[in-house]
Simulated assay, not measured.
Amino acid sequence: MSNRPTDPATEAFVAHRNLLFTVAYEMLGSAADAEDVLQESWLRWVGVDLEQVRDQRAYLVRITTRQSLNRLRTMRRRREAYVGQWLPEPMLTTPDVADDVELAESVSMAMMLVLERLSPTERAVFVLREVFEVGYDEIAEAVGKTPAAVRQIAHRARRHVDEGRPPKMTSQRQARAVLESFQRALETGNPQDLLDVLAPEVVLVSDGGGIKRAALRPVVGAEKVVRFYLGGVSRTKGTITCDPTVVNGNPALVVRLDGELDGIMGIRVEDERITSLYYVRNPEKLTRVESETRLTLR
């Protein structure tokens, strides 16, 4: 066993790494970009005089927020050229994320899409204040605004989010039961079984990134969703299998075609029916579904 003393900067960064990753992911919707942000944050952190840092957690969150804001502004331009619908990069999450209702809701596909409507600064302020309960003074330092301006931005961001926030989802237990029925219907390809589990106004958003087949616009309505799915299956001429999992803290399916990963199908359940489907097929976004990612609000 080594007697070499632990590097204080490394020790602090590792202790807060899961929190910093969660902050970056909620701001960016991309695990790959969140990892890049953490690397950039680390390079800045090791150059800091720790004796001058009063609150290491707050300082690290501030660095991560600034790097995330820089990255988000660049990503916005990139997404304007994205082919078809954009969905957040799905992540296989640990069981404790699903057990934490607040965290599971904040990283859900539905909420991440709502956050896309905000400007970069609004998103940073909303995430830090509403999700991580950071004080206005700390947020002001992170985003380069006055505390008074941050309060105004937070109010505006809350209003935008409330306008787009989906109704509260059913319990995880009920959602898992609906997911089981949906899984059976997908695997058998029975149109009526699919219609029975979908809400009449269900919306399917599929993301192929221009690499895999996907609808360029949301598919609205149970019958249209069923036709779209069954039409896709008929073109593949392969065997579809689905495995239940938890992605972004919520029930989802790992969809395989002839044993090969085809995509991740996230669901949102209200009143025992599926109201939203999020199908990520872009292979560039499927790298975080083989091993669990630990997210935390603390």
Results as ranks from 00 to 15, higher is better:
Ala15His: 04
Arg184Ala: 15
Leu253Gln: 13
Asp100Pro: 03
Ala104His: 03
Ser206Glu: 12
Val23Tyr: 01
Arg273Gly: 13
Leu113Glu: 02
Val197Met: 11
Thr22Phe: 03
Ala140Pro: 05
Leu128Ala: 06
Ala32Leu: 11
Ala9Ser: 12
Gln172Met: 15
Arg288Glu: 11
Met91Ser: 13
Glu133Thr: 13
Val269Gly: 15
Arg273Gln: 15
Ala98Ser: 01
Glu105Lys: 00
Val46Ala: 02
His160Pro: 00
His160Tyr: 09
Met111Arg: 12
Leu50Asp: 09
Leu204Gly: 06
Glu11Arg: 11
Arg281Cys: 03
Ile267Lys: 07
Thr22Asn: 05
Leu19Glu: 06
Met112Ile: 06
Arg129Tyr: 13
Asp193Ala: 15
Leu297His: 03
Arg17Ala: 07
Asp99Phe: 04
Ser119Lys: 13
Ser291Gly: 08
Leu286Ser: 02
Asp193Tyr: 11
Ser206Pro: 00
Thr65Phe: 06
Arg288Leu: 00
Met169Asn: 08
Arg268Met: 09
Ala81Ser: 11
Arg268Ile: 09
Met75His: 09
Thr236Cys: 06
Val127Cys: 10
Val37Tyr: 02
Arg268Gln: 11
Val202Ile: 06
Asp55Val: 07
His155Pro: 06
Val97Ile: 00
Arg268Tyr: 10
Thr94Gln: 06
Met169Ser: 08
Glu292Ala: 08
Thr6Lys: 08
Met169Ile: 09
Val131Lys: 02
Ala104Val: 08
Pro244Leu: 14
Gly164Cys: 09
Glu163Gln: 00
Ile211Met: 08
Gln172Lys: 03
Leu295Lys: 00
Val225Tyr: 00
Leu115Tyr: 13
Glu35Cys: 07
Asp258Glu: 08
Lys285Pro: 07
Arg227Met: 12
Tyr136Arg: 04
Met1Lys: 14
Ala149Glu: 14
Ala12Val: 04
Leu128Ser: 09
Ser30Asp: 06
Gly210Glu: 02
Ala58Thr: 14
Val247Lys: 09
Arg165Val: 14
Gln56Tyr: 08
Leu216Gly: 06
Leu72Met: 06
Val202Gln: 02
Ala222Val: 04
Leu194Ser: 04
Pro88Trp: 11
Pro166His: 01
Tyr278Met: 05
Glu40Leu: 01
Val233Arg: 12
Arg66Met: 11
Gln183Ser: 13
Asp262Val: 15
Thr170Ser: 14
Glu51Met: 15
His160Met: 12
Val23Asp: 09
Arg77Lys: 11
Ala24Lys: 00
Leu297Lys: 07
Arg57Gly: 11
Gln56Cys: 12
Ala157Phe: 07
Leu204His: 05
Arg151Val: 10
Leu20Lys: 02
Met27Phe: 04
Val219Ile: 03
Asp193Pro: 03
Glu270Ser: 14
Val225Asp: 03
Thr6Tyr: 03
Asn250Ile: 15
His160Thr: 15
Asp99Ile: 04
Pro167Lys: 05
Val114His: 02
Thr10Gly: 08
Gln152Lys: 12
Glu292Ser: 05
Asp49Glu: 15
Leu198Thr: 13
Leu277Asp: 10
Val226Asp: 14
Leu50Ile: 03
Ala142Arg: 10
Val48Trp: 07
Asp162Gln: 01
Leu257Thr: 15
Arg227Trp: 08
Glu122Phe: 13
Val53Met: 10
Arg268Leu: 05
Asp196Asn: 12
Thr10Ala: 04
Glu187Trp: 08
Val46Cys: 11
